[in-house]
Design a protein around this nucleic acid. Structure first.
Lengths: 165, 165
DNA sequence: GTCCCTATACTCGGATAGCAAGTGTCCGAGTATAGGCGG
DNA sequence: CCGCCTATACTCGGACACTTGCTATCCGAGTATAGGGAC
């Protein structure tokens, strides 16, 4: 089981976007530059975020991406589901209804006990992700980041914003 | 994020093996026949289970597979980790240390706040899986299965075992 | 000086190749069994 | 009749193709901006 690489990028992007002031936005090119990842592929991930309503895209010359909601209202689950899709990780193929011991389909309960257990575990995972907001991880990253990195980020941000003013 | 198909097969196989009497074993061929899945590929999954110590393989003409421990002592986490491997789903690539805001590596805390949050969610998932045993899902499947299916299974099992006596 | 218009440059969005991992299959090594042979 | 030996048939284990989905990239459509021109 592997989460897509884009999940990490998307989360970091959301954290950076959370640091923007009201009305500001960052284009995919700048987000990729800041995180040191290929711009073309990050664009694809950002499109997924935009399609799911996690970020909003601003078209036009001074356009870019911004968070669609307040950082306290965007959970990690929103980000993960936007990138990975809503399908559960465990897919039940109903193999209990195959083989020599099969009987008429009506007699089976709707959900296999194995699938139920797997999905219960996934639900716990989602619950934990839903309990963590982008604001939480943003403050966590902020407080744990070295002072130098914070200063550089602030300078880089103001530089990027000033360049476009 | 997708779990391998083999996880479902492996769990069903573990449940069926839990129904065996002491000293009995089922070969991969029979397990595949019972579940209606390709025998050659199921063998691969069973090898993973055997390598992880979830099931034990009995070599020789009347050999096969049996549970390595009592069904109450085998958890779904054991089965999933055996098939999927122990690596976490979220892989941190430390992209916080790339780009224009990077500083000397010593200054960063060992675990990124984002990775910590993701791994905390995975831990909740594993906890839930570890709390469910093969015996639990076996009794669940047993009680929810139609009576006809139970009878057919019992007859099929005794037939397979009798054939080899 | 002010307003409008046009050309521009930058953005997002979707369509297009490449590759790794999961999926599916096969054949060889090893062992308990069954039968035959000798005592 | 009993024990031993050999051939067998069945098992597991690992090595080998194929397909799906993730990774990576590009180019076209659209829009806010900047500049120039007319009034």
């Amino acid at each position: 089981m592997r989460l897509a690489e884009g999940v990490e990028w998307a989360t970091h992007c959301a954290v950076l976007l959370a640091a923007l002031k009201e009305g500001e936005s960052l284009p995919a090119r700048r987000l990729a530059e800041y995180h040191g990842v290929p711009s073309a592929y990050l664009a694809k991930t950002l499109q997924l975020l935009a399609g799911a309503g996690v970020v909003a895209s601003v078209p036009g010359r001074r356009g870019g991406y911004r968070l669609a909601k307040a950082p306290e209202r965007v959970t990690l689950l929103d980000v993960v589901l936007a990138v990975e899709g809503p399908e559960p990780a465990f897919r039940c193929n109903e193999i209990r209804r195959r083989g020599p011991a099969v009987v008429a389909g009506r007699a089976y309960p709707p959900v296999c006990a194995i699938a139920a257990a797997m999905w219960r575990a996934e639900e716990a995972w989602r619950q934990e992700l839903a309990g963590t907001t982008v604001a939480d991880v943003a403050s966590g990253l902020m407080s744990q980041a070295p002072r130098g990195a914070r200063d550089k980020t602030a300078r880089w941000l103001s530089g990027v914003m000033g360049r476009n003013e």
